[in-house]
Every structure is written in structure tokens, then in C-alpha cells.
Amino acid sequence: MIRPAQIQDRSPVGEFFSAIAVEARWIISDTFIMTWRNLLRYRRSPELLLFSTLSPIMFIFLFNYVFGGAIPTGDLNYIDFLMPGILVQTTLFSATTSGVGLAEDLQKGMVDRYRSLPMARSAVLGGRVSAETIVSLFVACLMLAVGYILGMRLHGGFWPGFALPFMVAGFAFGFSWVSALVGASVRNPESAGSMMFFVVFPLTFLSSAFVPIESMPGWLQPFTKINPITNAVDLGRSLSQGGPIVEDAVITALWTLGMTFVIGSVAVWRYRKV
């Protein structure tokens, strides 16, 4: 459908607001289409999902049965201690797909097609990030089920436990923008993939995800304490096992919003400049 050819002359203010209205409608509908496209890819090649679920399952087994016995976690069973950490790590790894996929689209010339269409600029990234977040949510629920089979129980009540997968998926959503920025900047799927691996891997291990921070050497503890992944994991642990929520929730929310709006804006800007 061709839009009317005439360009309406509006006052600059009217122009501005009508542009915003049109923009908002386009962002939503275009993001929806791009999310659908990215999810369809998972349905077409489910093996993509296999990789993001098998390795966390291996981690669960490795930590629970191999290392777990040697890690003192106070009153908590190790599997109860471990699962929130696994959930956060898994969804963060899953979020790195946003950047890899974006870099792939850039390399294959898909993005030229998108950019020549009258679609919202942010929808290409937004669709990626939204799709990966939905996948993250799915993977988080799946891991919870695996954890349950291995003996993990939600001791913090039903609703906090129910909120847990949404919380980690939300955090992963924020982190997806970091991944998208890397993808839009390096434009090479392999580089984007390995770069993100070297971000997520140390960050999750230098957090409270697998061992209590108190067991780490003193010089390392300050870093692990300010690591936002520690806050996210501690929040997840409180949600599933009971405990103070507010402080970690506020910090995690701030990080998520910060990554979404600050890093997200930079990522969209980078993408426009490609």
C-alpha cells in the first residue's frame, strides 16, 4: 500500500506530536512482527533451543553432584542455593543470542532490507530482544522443572516463586540490549558470540551464583558484591527461599532499566549508523 504522496505541511509542534503518535504505533506493530519472525526461527529449527537448554542442565548436574557437596551453604540445601544462580546464568547466556542474531542479519544484508522499509528503526533490535526474552522465560521455567526433579523446593511461598522466572527473564531483557549493542558494533556473529561469552562467563562465576561470596578471597569480595549479577541472584534466592527482597529488587530493577534505556538507546543509535 502506497502512502499518499503529498507531504503535509504542519506546524513544527503538530509535526512533532503526530510524528510521535505514528512512531509509537509503528514501534509497537513492527516490534511485534519482528518478535514473531525471531520466534518463528526457533520453531523452524528447534535445535537452536537445544543448545541453550542442554548446557545449563549439564551445569546443574555438574554443580549439584560434583562440586555441591564441597560447597557449604549454611541452612540451604545446595540445589536450593544453586538454582537461582543457574536461572540467571542461563537466561544471560540466552540473551547473548540477541547480539549474535543481529550481527548475523547485518552480515547477511537482511538489515539493508529492513532499513529500506518504512519500519521503526528500533523494531529490529526490539524484536530480537523481545523474542530472546520470551525464550529466556521458557528456558527459566524449564530449568525450574529440572531443579524440582532434582529436589529443589520453593520455600519462599508460591507467589515469590512464581515471580522468579519473570524476574530473571526481565533481567535478561535488560542484558539483551548490551548484547544487541555488541552485535550492532562488531557485526560479525562469531566475534559477537565469543565476546559475549567472555563477558557472561566471568561475571556469573564472580558472583554469588554458585558459591557464597564469603568463601571467596577477601580481595575479590568487593567486586563480587557490586556485580549486579550478585544482586539478581540474591533476589532470585530470596524469592525462592524466602528472605529480604527490597534492596536487591531495587538494585536489580535499576540495572535492568539502565541497561534497557541507556545501553538500548546507544544500541539503536549504533544500528542506525551502520
Binding site: 519472525r37 537482511m110 529500506s116 518504512p118
Partner: peptide, 26 residues
């Protein structure tokens, strides 16, 4: 625009590729 490298999505069907472009033209 039909660019130098065919900008089609490998995992979608031919029909879906065309339809997606149409939806993005609103």
C-alpha cells in the same frame, strides 16, 4: 530495494518472507 546479497530469511518460507516485508510496509 533488491540488494546485492539476496536479503531473504533462511528459516522462513518464501511466502512468509514476502508477507513479512508487506507487514513492515504497514
Amino acid at each position: 530495494l533488491a540488494g546485492q546479497s539476496a536479503a531473504v530469511d533462511d528459516l522462513l518460507t518464501g511466502r512468509e518472507n514476502i508477507q513479512m516485508a508487506g507487514r513492515l510496509y504497514h
